[in-house]
Design a protein around this nucleic acid. Structure first.
Lengths: 254, 254
DNA sequence: ATTCATTGCGTTACATTGACACAATGTAGT
DNA sequence: ACTACATTGTGTCAATGTAACGCAATGAAT
């Protein structure tokens, strides 16, 4: 089935495969070169960008649907994923957008479940930037990382969804460790600091931060310093996964 | 339309009115006689209890749907309401339960949207116990308060939904004021203390608690003590609504 | 009038936090 | 080879917050 046929099939027969009225949108956070980034798709009809999203198979857990979508976009299997909010504005204008899409592809006059009202569940994912291979889907012709504060205007309410995700991530930082999913296995204290600062959108005192994070016990200091940096070389750390998991469940009281 | 006709109509034609596959379930918390309670309906088919729930009109915001359901069950208009989780187990056996229901009512052999798989969104509500007039719906023959730790086995995954709601309420207590929606206008410090203790499931030092809650500035002390109590009479307090709202938005850092 | 559970207010020891000082490190420039 | 310097690692100290407990005041019940 070629590209156009595939899309037509999705519009006309997708409702046999997927639940109606419900979609999933993913805010995929990554961290690279001291910048917080999110992964976006370029909708090949609107010229606008969009969050990676998809639909729920008739016999699929929603978490699985989100996982499937993430895997298709990033190639990653083990992903930290969680739902953070449901968006149910009756005026989320999926109908107009999807009609326009179909028209741009060159199909018209058909009826479709895609013109129905959609409620969408927002999922946020934290991934290791360096391990991601961005892959576009059939509705998109690009899949790229955007610096969090340079995200363009997106389709529908996707900017709102992003803001809500960021907000909930900031809240989480107060009572849960977060770095494990966003950083490579080995990292330095300044990198971890910068991650926290970027998510929170404000600077922290590096000395107090170090004391606090060390006191949680979730870090293991390695006997190895970063090579090839100007100035004093920082030590590498990695997460003590056992204690990290514990802190995830029990909370940190940050 | 009589009772049975109404139910039949709901099963056969409800999908013209409501979104398919999606429902809303509400965990309604109240506080009375130093006990945390929730409002349950007795499903008139299963002999089991259930959370008050309902469906989303085709042109309705999900928050509005939850509000509508709450209003119908409690008579209250101004309610503190928030979504806390989406439950999407594909094996939530709504089909079996709803088929049984229809059979018990005396209807059989029909097809119905109610036999489809349902994803449900959990909402939690905090209400003033004393102002609630519990009202059953057409699927139920009773609507009653249950002490939170004496909740019976419920239909489907409703016990899980309740546990999740309680958990999220406990988390909230750490960074948001909560009492306003659960207590009558005037209340004493021991009552507020007991509310916190009940939600958290552990005792707090009353003297430290008082200092902490006073220091947030969300309380106004009245020049009036409780009458007719043995021992020393406690003062009444009420919430400083302006500061309370502020704290809701800004967080308390409790 | 006395008893006594409970309230209101206070104290003290200890832990946590925020702000800042200073020496150690190691590359880059001379 | 030596020096400059940005950055890291460790430490200090005062202010603030928290946990644990003491004690007198209250007022219905006896």
């Amino acid at each position: 089935m070629d590209y156009k046929e595939e899309i037509k099939d999705h519009f006309i027969s997708g409702h046999k495969k997927y639940l109606r009225h419900i979609s999933v949108d993913c805010v995929i956070f990554g961290f690279h070169k001291n910048e917080l980034k999110i992964l976006l798709l370029k909708a090949n009809y609107a010229g606008k960008w969009a969050l990676p999203g998809g639909f729920i198979l008739k016999d699929e857990h929603m978490d699985e649907a989100a996982k499937r979508i993430l895997e298709q976009r990033t190639g990653l299997m083990e992903i930290y994923l969680q739902q953070f909010h449901v968006f149910s504005e009756p005026e989320r204008s999926t109908k107009r957008v999807n009609k326009q899409f179909l028209k741009n592809v060159g199909i018209e006059g058909e009826e479709s479940w895609m013109f129905d009202r959609f409620i969408t569940v927002g999922y946020s994912a934290l991934v290791d930037f360096t391990k991601v291979q961005p892959v576009a889907d059939i509705f998109s012709d690009a899949c790229e990382w955007f610096e969090i504060h340079k995200v363009p205007e997106m389709i529908l309410d996707h900017n709102l969804i992003l803001d809500t995700a960021l907000n909930s991530l900031q809240l989480q930082l107060n009572y849960q460790p977060v770095g494990y999913n966003l950083l490579p296995e080995k990292f330095t204290m300044p990198e971890l600091l910068k991650l926290y600062e970027t998510i929170l959108g404000r600077t922290l005192d590096r000395r107090n931060f170090q004391r606090k994070i060390i006191s949680t016990g979730i870090l293991k200091k390695l006997n190895e310093t970063k090579k090839g940096v100007a100035h004093k070389a920082p030590y590498y750390y990695k997460f003590d996964l056992r204690k990290y998991q514990k802190a995830l469940k029990a909370g940190l009281g940050f």
